[in-house]
Write a protein that binds this DNA or RNA. Structure first.
Lengths: 108, 108
DNA sequence: TAGTGGTACCTTGTGAGATAAGGTAGTTCC
DNA sequence: GGAACTACCTTATCTCACAAGGTACCACTA
């Protein structure tokens, strides 16, 4: 499978991906994990996502609010704040730069 | 600069990039570093490239031959072998997969 | 009421890889 | 003999994705 060995390649982009998901919609760890699995990142586990979320919180890129769920334990909802949106913009700039450079190289 | 903080994003792709450069032309560490700097990876240093080259050699992905230079110390030339070409193909498959997923996400 | 399955959170340790910060030598030219 | 360029290498450090655990809430049912 192509998805084998994606781990190293995900470094430095996974955080941006999570930022984007949070930007699209206020959401929580368990749902983000599910969403990422759907999106093609099949091997991603909850542990990975939670370490990222805690990092984002620690860096002050997200606002957090705990809310009860009707089907399980309370959920920790994450929303991007201004710093988070700036970080996301930076992420896309870096991504565009890197992917352009690599695609150029690939076609050469 | 966009190139700031590219480090983490380069993880797992830099090796593939180096494989591609070697595939294009038998070459050596110092020249690879220069080429990468030209290609937009401005902050990349020799130390980084040499650790990758030694890893490629250890994994048996390249053939190595030392040859004298007319302008300095002898050069260690690297050429891709069959295993290296297979690895490069795998790298592109992974890259295409990852960049597609991310670009989809970006446009959504 | 004990068990199962789904939801939802977290922690700790490990490993891989890019980088920084050094070092050693060969050549050319003044 | 001292720059400046070429050319190689090593070691220690840091970050980050992940594995492998754990806790707890809720609904259902045997």
């Amino acid at each position: 499978m192509v998805t084998d060995g994606l781990t190293e390649m995900l470094r430095g982009t996974l955080e941006g991906i999570v930022l984007k998901l949070i930007d699209a919609e206020e959401t929580y760890g368990y749902a983000i994990t599910r969403r990422l699995n759907e999106l093609g990142f099949a091997d991603l586990t909850e542990g990975t996502v939670y370490t990222i979320l805690l990092r984002l919180e620690k860096r002050g890129l997200v606002d957090v609010s705990k809310r009860p769920s009707e089907v399980g334990p309370p959920r920790k909802f994450y929303a991007l704040n201004d710093a988070g949106r700036r970080e996301l913009a930076t992420f896309w700039a870096r991504w565009d730069y890197l992917s352009s450079r690599i695609d150029e190289l690939k076609e050469s």
